[in-house]
């Protein structure tokens, strides 16, 4: 039995009176590509840093691959972490970066690292500070991949990249996943970044997990219902309304349903992942224009 990639129970992180993460409970299976999505300031970075052992929880517990984060060298070797904006050392050359990686990581594969740098068409003597944003992100990813982690955590890895560099980054990340069967957790405030690559989704809004689950299950269990207002006033058991809007006669509902929905009196449509995420976001922060902050 493989240990879950990430398991959290009642996980809470407070800074003074400010709740960065509140009562977060998760059980994410291994060998998945997990998307952590939420608006800026939702607590994504806090959760990822807790998983990597860079922060200690105020309350609750968290385990990565069955181990306590930051419990020792073994755990650190198993978990890779790429911080926000894929940082590198501007004054060090690419070759220096690889030497540094080889020195600090017991499972380091120099062959993997060199092969990737070669594929990217980069000169190992070049200083990281002279690389483009896309190239720097690829260098950071190369370091993380050559470490051969069982769990790779990436905090907003593509946020500052242009669409072309984003696509190239995701191709490389997915190539790694296909090869190593590793677990990957990456965060973004854009669902569109995650849509193709993730098979598991966690929506974090206002320091709380709103929903988490297998992407296919989520898409199969959520619907948009449109129809006459009185028809939709009474719904069968097993149907949870996530979002609703009404005109005098018509209602539009976003629902989570475990039971088959009878579509005779109203229209039942499937949702896109983006619609689904936005529904949970507006549910969690009804007073704010959630749509604005997620685009």
């Amino acid at each position: 039995m493989t240990a879950p990639a990430l398991k959290a129970v009642g996980l809470t992180k407070r800074y003074g009176r400010h709740h960065a993460l509140s009562d977060c409970t998760l059980d994410i299976p291994a060998s998945r590509v997990v998307g952590l999505v939420g608006p800026n300031g939702a607590g994504k970075t806090t959760l990822l840093q807790l998983a990597a052992g860079m922060l200690a929880p105020t309350a609750g517990t968290i385990e990565a691959l069955g181990g306590h984060p930051a419990s020792g060298a073994d755990q650190l070797a198993k978990v890779g972490f790429v911080a926000q904006d894929t940082p590198t050392y501007a004054n060090l050359s690419i070759a220096d970066h690889l030497r540094f990686g080889a020195h600090t990581n017991p499972g380091w594969s120099q062959a993997t690292a060199e092969e990737r740098i070669d594929q990217l068409g980069l000169d190992p003597r070049q200083k990281a500070g002279k690389l483009s944003g896309g190239q720097r992100s690829q260098l950071a990813l190369t370091m993380a991949i050559a470490k051969r982690p069982e769990l790779l955590i990436l905090d907003e890895p593509v946020a500052s990249l242009d669409p072309m560099a984003r696509r190239e980054f995701m191709k490389a990340l997915m190539g790694f996943t296909a090869d190593d069967k590793a677990s990957v957790i990456l965060s973004s405030h854009l669902v569109s970044d995650l849509e193709r690559v993730c098979d598991y989704l966690v929506v974090l809004v206002a320091s709380r997990v709103q929903i988490a689950g297998d992407v296919d299950d989520l898409l199969a269990g959520h619907f948009r219902l449109t129809g006459p207002r009185r028809e939709l006033a009474e719904l069968p058991g097993g149907v949870d309304v996530i979002e609703e809007s009404h005109t005098e006669r018509q209602s539009t509902l976003i629902v989570r349903a475990d039971v088959p929905l009878d579509g005779r009196s109203f229209t039942v449509e499937k949702l896109t992942l983006e619609d689904l995420v936005l529904a949970y976001m507006s549910k969690a922060m009804p007073a704010q224009p959630a749509r604005e902050s997620t685009r």
Partner: peptide, 9 residues
Amino acid sequence: VAKVAINPN
């Protein structure tokens, strides 16, 4: 996955 950048699963 290297061509279309999708999840191997």
